[in-house]
């Protein structure tokens, strides 16, 4: 059985400094073995501005066995499967230690977002793109963040207004936004390069 008194302590500790870390863990059901963690996308990365949800499953041996974690939010990253959300991270496997907690594991995942390891990939397609064509990788990652990890993205009208204020004609702004699927960053890139 999972050591639930420890899990409860962890939840409190983690949610106490949520304003500092931005990381939260909340139970999904009432038996404390299924939890949902959220991490903010690190600043200065294509994941910036996104909020990523992570599915946490505690095995019977927790904390002596690593928690099972995978992304519930779709994410474009060399070490995270774009299909299943599976994470390739040593501390979630053989480098786990009972002194680690759900919060420290989530912090490591956040660090993984800012420092991908393309040589040890989980998703070969993404890793290849990362190595061969970083620009495309970054814009895809940004697009995925925009599409899947934004809790409250700007409304279409606000985006249009923002871009029009930058000096682009409204008609072109609307059509470009439509082409890129509503991503204002990508639209801006496209408008600038046009």
């Amino acid at each position: 059985m999972v050591d639930f008194s420890r899990v409860q302590k962890e939840l409190q500790e983690c949610n106490r400094d949520i304003n500092v870390s931005g990381i939260s863990v909340n139970p999904k059901s009432d038996n404390l073995t299924n939890l949902i963690g959220t991490i903010p996308g690190p600043i200065g990365t294509p994941y910036e501005g996104g909020t990523f949800k992570i599915d946490i499953n505690l095995p019977d041996g927790y904390p002596f066995e690593p928690p099972k974690m995978k992304f519930a939010t779709k994410v474009w990253h060399p070490n995270i499967s774009s299909q299943s959300g599976a994470i390739c991270l040593d501390i979630l496997k053989d480098q786990w230690s009972p002194a680690l907690t759900l919060k420290t594991a989530l912090l490591s995942i956040q660090a993984l977002l800012s420092a991908p390891e393309p040589d040890d990939p989980q998703d070969a397609v993404v890793a290849q793109q990362y190595l061969k064509d970083y620009q495309t990788f970054a814009s895809t990652a940004r697009y995925w963040t925009e599409s899947f990890a934004k809790i409250s993205s700007l409304g279409v009208e606000e985006k249009v207004q923002k871009l029009v204020e930058m000096g682009f004609p409204e008609g072109l702004v609307r059509s470009t936004l439509e082409v890129v699927g509503g991503d204002e960053n990508m639209a801006l890139e496209k408008l600038c390069s046009a």
Partner: peptide, 17 residues
Amino acid sequence: DRRKRSLKYHCTPDRKI
């Protein structure tokens, strides 16, 4: 490893949050 743990862990009562 899981077998080992469960051998010794079967006792912890289920606790509600």
